[in-house]
Amino acid sequence: MEEYLDWIAPIGKDLYVIRTGEWRYQKPERDHEKCKKCGTCLIFCPTGSIYVEDERYETDYEYCKGCGICARECRADAIIMVEEVRE
């Protein structure tokens, strides 16, 4: 871009990311034995923090805010919310 046009108008380029995992006061824990792999937790997670790895459903604690929706919606009762303990 030419010199005159550098930063003349408000635009954003790099991705804005907050480590929302820090917000958590309770944490979802998953019992992989009980998990029926129905995917309910994945689609309802507001923060999009649930992912599948080696056919197991996992939570990305970097961004999970600990709202508890996954635990509430899980029909197999495979997720429970536990107190977040930070060292």
């Binding site: 991705l15 907050i18 929302t20 995992g21 917000w23 507001p46 923090s49 600990g66 709202c67 929706i69």
Partner: peptide, 13 residues
């Protein structure tokens, strides 16, 4: 973005 500052349990997100 994976981390936006919505409230916990936000429906709109």
């Amino acid at each position: 973005s994976p981390g936006v500052s919505t409230c916990l349990g936000c429906g709109a997100e």
